[in-house]
């Protein structure tokens, strides 16, 4: 493992078993995250972003199974660890802001007590006043008044609940935070405040960040590096700036062309017609072929070879789509 990396994911494959068949939600996913950097994961809903996040935390649902691959956090292989070993890394090493977490607070317990419980689990030797101080510090960090600790979830606005979720995710001093669509249900001004808060916390605590969103504009704001996911696979990855400047995969281009902006000349947007393929089928060849604007013969005949090739310094894209042009 490269000392500069906090996380390395190698050829990760995960599937869900369902009555209808197997859902291959994570396919050959590889990426690494440099210490202190932010990494974005973007793609349409259903492409597997949350599945990647949950697999990294090893909190995937019961019908999920890691088929193969490695997750190396801070030099330690996580695949195959038992629950007790995992618990040490979870929250204290990697923590997550779940998609929809702000609506998952227990309604009958005060916010502060719920955070206290998480800290107590991780630091059983802490005194009560140490934990109270810690909660106050966390709240200050995310822009909440200390008295919010004594309130119940329903007494808080959406934005405040989400700030409290971020405080919770920081409560066991993680090194890496995964934020899964933390602003999706919020309105733009609140979203802006939360994004700023996350950035500030990341810098102040020198954290690494995985930021998940279906909105490529938010990824542009938040991340140094990014990966574009399509049908369970990473189809393009590299520095965020490079990908926006010089997208190589037609899916990435289509995402960019379908995102409205308030700056620059007003331009017509292109819609991205069709839907991603079912993750149930084991298609051969390129999963993007049915939606590709200019598939090569190889691609449309289903013979395309999949896999990332380097197209620039640290910039990788699917071989098939680079050839399709």
């Amino acid at each position: 493992m490269n000392q500069k990396n906090i996380l390395e994911v190698k050829k990760l494959n995960m599937m869900y078993t369902t009555l209808e068949g197997n859902v291959n939600a994570v396919k050959d996913v590889s990426f690494e995250i440099k210490k202190g950097s932010s990494f974005g994961l973007v793609g349409e809903s259903g492409c597997g972003k949350t599945s990647v996040a949950m697999t990294l935390m090893q909190l995937q649902s019961d019908n999920a199974k890691i088929v193969s691959g490695n997750i190396i956090f801070n030099g330690q292989e996580m695949v195959g660890l038992n629950e007790k070993e995992l618990r040490k890394i979870r929250w204290g090493g990697i923590s997550i802001v779940f998609q929809g977490a702000m609506n998952a607070w227990n309604p009958v317990i005060k916010i502060g007590e719920q955070i206290r419980e998480a800290i107590r689990e991780h630091y059983p030797e802490n005194t009560r006043s140490e934990n109270t101080n810690k909660i106050n510090t966390l709240f200050k960090m995310v822009g909440l008044e200390p008295n919010v600790a004594d309130r119940y979830p329903h007494e808080l606005s959406g934005g405040m609940k989400q700030r409290a979720v971020i405080a919770l995710s920081l409560s066991c001093d993680p090194k890496l935070i995964i934020a899964d669509e933390p602003t999706t249900a919020l309105d733009v001004v609140i979203q802006d405040q939360i994004l700023k808060e996350i950035k500030k916390v990341q810098e102040d605590l020198d954290l690494s960040l995985i930021y998940i969103s279906h909105d490529i504009a938010v990824i542009a704001e938040m991340t140094d590096y990014m990966a574009v996911m399509y049908a369970g696979r990473i189809v393009e990855t590299g520095k965020t700036k490079d990908i926006f400047k010089n997208p190589k995969h037609s899916y990435t281009r289509m995402l960019l062309d379908s995102t409205p902006s308030i700056i620059g000349d007003k331009k017509m947007l292109k819609s991205l017609d069709g839907e991603p393929p079912s993750l149930m089928d084991n298609f051969s060849g390129c999963s993007f072929a049915p939606r590709c604007p200019q598939p090569s013969d190889n691609c449309s005949s289903g013979n395309a070879e999949m896999g990332l090739i380097e197209v620039g310094d640290g910039h990788f894209a699917d071989k098939c789509c680079v050839e399709c042009g």
């Binding site: 733009v188 802006d192 909105d215 504009a217 938010v218 542009a220 991340t223 308030i262």
Partner: peptide, 8 residues
């Protein structure tokens, strides 16, 4: 407060 799809 509107995010802009341009990292630069």
């Amino acid at each position: 407060s509107i995010p802009v799809p341009d990292p630069t």
